[in-house]
Structure formats: C-alpha cells, structure tokens
Simulated scan of single mutants.
Amino acid sequence: MADTATTNVQEAAPVDAQHARVPTVVVDDVHIVYKVHGAGSGRGSATSALSRIISRKRSPAIREVHAVRGVSFVAYKGEAIGLIGSNGSGKSTMLAAIAGLLPTEAGGIYTNGQPSLLGVNAALMNDLTGDRNVVLGCLAMGMSPAEVRSRYQDIVDFSGINEKGDFITLPMRTYSSGMAARLRFSIAAAKTHDVLLIDEALATGDQKFQKRSEARIRELRKEAGTVFLVSHNNNAIRDTCERTIWIEKGELVMDGPTDVVVKAYERGERP
C-alpha cells in the first residue's frame, strides 16, 4: 500500500500572476481501501494465524472495503469547498486522506502547506479543564506562548462556553458533546491554516454559534486559506461554500457551483 504523497504544488500555478489561481490540494485518481480484520470468522486460533503468517497467506477473515474510487479534483487558495453525500459515501475518508492520516491504495494527494483536520472527535483531554485544553491545543498547532495568551480570551468568547457559567475552568468530561465540539472548532479556527478540513463541526451548537462559525470560515478564506467542509446540513454548505463536491459510494458524482450541485443532490439527479 502506497503512502499518501505530500509535495509542493505551487509550480502548477498559472504564469500570469495577476490572474493566478494557486492550487493548494491536488487529488489525482485516488483509491482508498480499508482492510477489516476478523470480519465474520470469529477469533480463530493462534496456531492457524501463525501458519498463515509463515505461508504468507491472507486470512480468510480479512475483508476489503473500497471506500474511495478514483476521485480527482484540484482545490485552490481562497476556496471554501463543501463535500456532500449520503452516510458511508467516503466524505470523511477523503478528508482524512488529505490530512495525511490515511494512505492511498492508488493515486496521489499533493498539498501546498500543512492540512489541519478538525472533526467532532478531535482529541482533547477530558480530564483537563477547558482552559488547559485551549492552551495545549494552540501550542500543538504551532502557536507561540505569546500568541496563545493574546488570543485566549477571543477563543473562549467565540466558543460561548462561559455564556451560562464559568465552564472553561471545569474538566472537559463535564461538557456536553455540543460544548466540546464548539471549543474544538474555536481552538482550530484561532489560527490561519493553509488547508483547514472541517468534518461536521458546524452541525453542533445553536444557530448563533453556527453563524459565528460561518463568518470565521469566510475570514479564514480571506486570510489565504482553503477550507473543506463536510456536513449533512445543506444550508451550512450553501451559506459557507461557493463550490461543492458530491461523493457517493466512493465515487465523485459532481463538482461545481454549490447551488447547482446541492440542488442535484437533493433531487437525487446524477449527471
């Protein structure tokens, strides 16, 4: 299995700098295959497993899932791109591959800059307080201690964690799932990213927080980043992204202006 390729793609930009569109992510005929171990055959015995290892035979309990099938597209600096599709269509898998967390079976992914993946399951430490998680999360993103101190209060205010009490000083395990997701997004959005990958982050929180999130994504785009957003909330996609990619059963169905693609998706009209 080939590792996900990462390289600089600035040389692919058009020669005319005045009208240059700088590519930030190139996905070239990518296939991603999961190997699920132990599917449908029980645990088996250590003797049989050792025999298979020695003989280099594949376990009959290994099942392959072809999650992404030949997807290709190019993302450019300043774009906000929505990824839509039914459950299990390969959207989140595609984001994880762009972030470098999943290897490709075939094809390549090339990025200009460091992609940062933000999902509702992004790791924060449940036993630490919210304020400690803010500091550690910012440091992990490469911010200096001085930058963390200068942006700390803005992060807390943006998350809305303290709107109904001093929750930022409580352990993360006391937070609701929505509160935790809002804090994750607020930490990630505090830094300008080359490529920011957001998986369902806007699906959590109230309408006021969603509006703040959408406004922050627009700011990130102006600050030169590229944003990918996976969401089942089509209104969030419409409000945030001018381009949308529809993926179904691991295949790219449609790539174009958000209004056109989302309408076709909602009607189930494949081109």
Rank of each mutant, 00 (worst) to 15 (best):
D166E: 11
D166P: 02
F167L: 15
F167S: 09
I168H: 08
I168Y: 05
T169S: 15
L170N: 14
L170M: 15
L170F: 13
P171I: 06
P171T: 02
M172N: 06
R173Q: 13
T174W: 09
T174C: 06
Y175I: 06
Y175T: 03
S176A: 12
S176R: 11
S176W: 00
S176E: 12
S177M: 10
G178N: 10
M179S: 14
M179A: 12
A180Q: 14
A180L: 13
A180I: 00
A180N: 12
A180T: 01
A180M: 10
A181P: 04
A181D: 05
A181G: 06
R182D: 05
R182E: 03
L183H: 01
L183E: 02
R184Y: 00
R184W: 01
R184K: 15
R184A: 04
R184N: 03
F185P: 01
F185G: 07
F185D: 02
S186M: 08
S186T: 11
I187A: 03
A190M: 07
A190C: 05
K191Y: 00
T192F: 06
H193W: 04
D194T: 02
D194L: 03
D194Y: 04
V195I: 13
V195H: 05
V195S: 00
L196G: 01
L196C: 02
L196I: 07
I198Y: 02
I198D: 05
I198M: 07
I198H: 04
D199M: 06
D199A: 05
D199K: 06
D199W: 03
D199N: 07
E200H: 06
A201L: 08
A201Y: 04
L202S: 07
L202C: 05
L202N: 03
L202K: 05
L202D: 01
A203P: 00
A203G: 11
T204P: 06
T204E: 10
T204F: 11
T204S: 14
G205R: 07
G205H: 07
D206L: 13
Q207M: 11
Q207A: 11
Q207N: 11
Q207W: 02
Q207Y: 05
K208E: 12
K208C: 03
Q210Y: 02
K211W: 02
K211V: 11
R212K: 15
R212T: 15
S213D: 04
S213Q: 08
S213C: 15
E214C: 11
E214K: 10
E214L: 12
E214S: 13
E214T: 13
E214R: 13
A215V: 13
A215Q: 14
R216E: 14
R216T: 13
I217Y: 07
I217Q: 03
R218E: 10
R218W: 10
E219D: 15
E219K: 12
E219N: 12
E219Y: 09
E219I: 11
L220F: 04
L220I: 09
R221V: 13
R221P: 08
R221M: 11
K222H: 12
K222W: 01
A224V: 09
A224Q: 15
A224W: 14
A224P: 08
G225F: 09
G225Y: 10
G225M: 10
G225S: 10
T226S: 07
T226A: 06
T226L: 12
V227S: 04
V227R: 08
V227D: 02
V227E: 01
F228D: 08
F228H: 13
F228R: 10
L229G: 06
V230Q: 06
V230K: 08
V230F: 07
